Simulated assay, not measured.
Amino acid sequence: MGYDAESLVKAVRALGAEIAHRRAELTHLDQEIGDGDHGENLARGFSAVLTKLRAAEPETPSKVLSLVATTLISTVGGASGPLFGTAFLRASTVIGTATELDGTLVASALVAARDGVVARGKAEVGDKTMVDALSPAAEAATAAAAQGADVAGVLAAAAAAAAAGAESTRPLQARKGRASYLGERSIGHVDPGAQSTTYLLDSLALSAASHTED
């Protein structure tokens, strides 16, 4: 069986559980350099996503991602809702009417997600934002797809690159967002958005790997 809408719905459910599990950790990270609500906001958003998925039966992967996007935008406060929502929305647009995903399509979706976040947030690599995780993830995904990797392989490469990218934010001084107001005090902390991006991709990669084994 290919990686279809049903497979993606299962992955999003697992992602919602992972974000709920990481809520306190992400909130703590955000308390150090932000508003302190990143974990709570993201967990609330994905809880709403899971509620909507119980009542909906999206027919294509694109429709699954579109549902995630619109729900996050409408329920997550601060910058996270629009940014993560934009990422999922751009990804859904690239996937289009495809009924099944392959490695190349997933890589294209991640590139579109990254480009959407950059356009929306006006951030670039080095600004200490989620872009520091998402950009290398998109590049790693593209490289993996070019080598013939399947969905699981592409997402695994993206997750590993995102983890390294998130850690790279620790020594940076923030140039965007609430953390930028702290100046040098933002140095020494991992950006919460970059870390949650890593958890998101890692969860999706684990789901894809499990799907491949089934």
Rank of each mutant, 00 (worst) to 15 (best):
A48V: 10
V49W: 12
V49I: 12
L50W: 07
T51S: 15
L53A: 00
R54D: 15
A55T: 15
A55L: 14
A56S: 15
E57K: 14
P58T: 06
T60P: 04
T60L: 08
P61W: 05
P61M: 11
S62P: 00
V64N: 07
S66I: 08
T70Q: 14
T70H: 15
L72H: 10
I73S: 10
S74P: 11
V76T: 07
V76I: 12
G77W: 09
G77S: 00
A79I: 05
A79R: 03
S80C: 06
L83A: 03
L83V: 04
F84P: 06
T86A: 07
F88E: 02
F88M: 01
S92A: 15
S92R: 09
T97I: 00
T99K: 14
T99G: 13
T99S: 14
E100D: 12
E100T: 15
D102T: 07
T104D: 13
V106S: 02
A107M: 12
A107N: 03
S108H: 12
S108K: 15
A109Y: 10
L110S: 03
A112P: 09
A112W: 11
A112Y: 03
A112M: 10
A113N: 12
R114D: 14
R114H: 14
D115A: 05
D115Y: 10
V117N: 06
V117T: 11
V118G: 10
A119N: 09
R120A: 05
R120L: 13
R120K: 14
G121C: 05
G121Q: 01
E124R: 15
E124C: 11
E124G: 15
K128T: 04
T129A: 04
A133R: 05
A133W: 03
L134T: 02
L134P: 01
S135Y: 00
A138I: 04
E139G: 01
A140Y: 09
A141G: 07
T142R: 02
A143V: 13
A143C: 10
A145H: 09
Q147A: 15
V151S: 05
L155R: 04
A157V: 03
A160Y: 00
A161P: 11
T169Y: 00
T169D: 01
T169M: 04
R170F: 09
P171A: 10
P171R: 13
A174D: 04
R175S: 03
K176H: 13
